[in-house]
Amino acid sequence: MILLPVLLAAAAPTLDCPALLKDDPAKALEIANGRILQGGGVSAKQCAALAFAALGKWPAAAAAFEQAAHEAERGQLAVAADLWVQAGNAHLAAGQAKEAVGAFDAALLTGAVTGRASGEAHLDRARAQVALGKLDQARIDLDVALRQVPEDPLAWLLSASLARRMGDLERAGTDIGKAAQLSPDDASVALEAGRIALASGSPDAARVAFEGAIKVQPNSDAAKAAQAELDRLKTPAQQK
């Protein structure tokens, strides 16, 4: 009897994961799983994880990235840190915030995540902390991210949103201003600016910001949220 891994190996003697992912992620997953059954190493597991991600199967992708990260750690490979970061982002996409925090913790504990990569990892861990309602921990991570990746508008946007949620409207206004400087045509930034203006008691400024979000990216999720905010701002007389 011929085993399945042998058949897969015969069908694909080389595993060009990037090309396969672009052309046929399901085929990439099939071949990668065959290589894993044959005792394939970190690269096969990472390819499987990337294929799951390309197919939108985020819980499976997160699990596969973690398997690859564990194997990389056993082999003392530097790629382990990157794999933990990928696992964390897959968990986030799967709505698994607690597991995401654990993966980002593992990545940062390796000591191999430095510079911009460290800033982005802290930013992503902050997103997971917010999802868990741990706003104080998220604030710590975001402050690190802002120091390490001050050119990233998403960091300033998330910082502004967090500050608003924590009642620090002065900081929220300052941070959303920096986000707007870095990304002036981002509907998400305009949407948050409107929410901060509304929380600060400035409905007219909020309307301008919400209308700006719709104008710059009319079909985006942020624009739809901005329209919902505008609808809530309408007076009974305007709704007639």
Rank of each mutant, 00 (worst) to 15 (best):
A63E: 13
D16S: 07
G41Y: 02
L15K: 08
A69S: 05
I176F: 08
A10Y: 06
L92E: 02
E73T: 04
A225N: 06
I36V: 11
K234M: 15
L142M: 06
L162I: 09
E211S: 11
L198D: 06
N33E: 14
A54S: 14
A44W: 05
A172Y: 14
A53Y: 14
L109A: 11
K27A: 07
V149T: 14
L182K: 10
R116S: 08
Q76L: 10
V101C: 10
K27Y: 10
D204I: 04
A10M: 12
L182P: 01
G102R: 02
Q96D: 09
C47L: 06
A94S: 04
A63R: 07
D141P: 08
V144W: 11
G173M: 07
R147C: 06
A205C: 05
L4K: 03
V130G: 02
V149F: 12
G88Q: 01
V189Y: 10
P13T: 04
E66C: 03
A155G: 09
A9Y: 12
A223G: 10
I36E: 10
L198S: 11
S188P: 00
S183N: 11
A163W: 15
L162R: 04
D141A: 01
A145F: 07
E73N: 07
A72R: 01
L7M: 05
P5M: 04
P59V: 02
S118E: 13
A28M: 05
V149W: 15
K27V: 01
W156R: 10
L135K: 14
C17K: 06
A199G: 05
A172C: 07
G34P: 13
Q137V: 12
R165F: 15
A213T: 03
W58P: 00
P203D: 05
S118R: 15
A26L: 10
P184S: 11
P5N: 03
R127P: 09
Q38P: 15
L8E: 12
